[in-house]
């Protein structure tokens, strides 16, 4: 079943075409790797799907309804966007992980938070820590948990493991796979890492100069690419 769909998206900013004629569907449970050179419009595409920006032309549909017809906060809770550089606000980790509950006017569920922390090899003592005392990998794991606590249906990961070492990358991938298995979350992730794309993606969307150059089965993409490389 189609969960989200881009139809004829064009994005022009300062007389420059960022995205052109973007059309593709996202099915429930999909795992789509977004690839392409820097500046090809990958992050802009995520910002459009999260309604942080609007297209110049074209429409984005979520459950067959134009995303602009949703209450923006409601849409963003269903389609969660996690930035490449983790940004933790306030002072402590606790503040960040309590925030999703605070937005829904609920008390933080510390049991749920603790369970997420365990899944990414972090202990609850991190809650008291100051944001600045965390390593890049720890910050990214906390930022990811913070978004998952919103219980989105789609997560958009923008190169979240790009600056991380192998161990942290593995922990984040493990959490994402676990979320997909347990909550059937739909995943879109930007990566430059071919091996990571092969590990996680069922489909690949390849962007170049703001246009789709490939959209389809991941295995098919990598076999085609293999042939081209040869």
């Amino acid at each position: 079943m189609t969960l989200m769909e881009c139809k004829d998206i064009n994005l022009i900013k300062d007389n420059q075409t960022i995205l052109s004629q973007i059309s593709f569907p996202i099915q429930i449970g999909d795992s789509i790797g977004i690839m392409g050179p820097s500046g090809s419009g990958k992050s802009s595409l995520f910002r459009l799907l999260n309604l942080l920006i609007s297209p110049t032309h074209g429409e984005v549909f979520y459950r067959n309804k134009n995303i602009q017809e949703y209450i923006p906060t409601e849409l963003r809770r269903r389609v969660s966007y996690i930035l490449q550089k983790p940004y933790l606000f306030g002072n402590t980790v606790q503040e960040n992980l309590a925030y999703p509950y605070q937005l829904c006017k609920q008390k933080p569920n510390w049991k749920e938070i603790s369970s997420y922390l365990t899944k990414v090899n972090l202990s609850t003592t991190i809650l008291e820590k100051h944001n600045s005392a965390l390593s890049g990998g720890e910050q990214q794991r906390i930022a990811l948990i913070r978004s998952l606590l919103i219980k989105p249906e789609i997560i958009l990961l923008d190169e979240v493991t790009a600056a991380l070492d192998e161990e942290n990358t593995h922990l984040i991938e493990k959490l994402i796979i676990n979320e997909q298995e347990t909550h059937n979350i739909t995943l879109l992730f930007v990566t430059h890492n071919k091996v990571q794309a092969q590990r996680l993606a069922k489909k690949i969307l390849y962007l170049k100069n703001g246009s789709i150059h490939f959209f389809g089965n991941a295995a098919q993409y990598f076999s085609l690419k293999g042939e081209q490389d040869e």
Binding site: N50, P72, T73, Y81, L83, Y87, F89, Y99, L103
Partner: peptide, 15 residues
């Protein structure tokens, strides 16, 4: 950045 991260989490503009 702080505002956009909060918006991404579904916070209304005022929040």
């Amino acid at each position: 950045e702080e505002i956009e991260v909060k918006l991404c989490l579904g916070a209304p503009p005022k929040e």
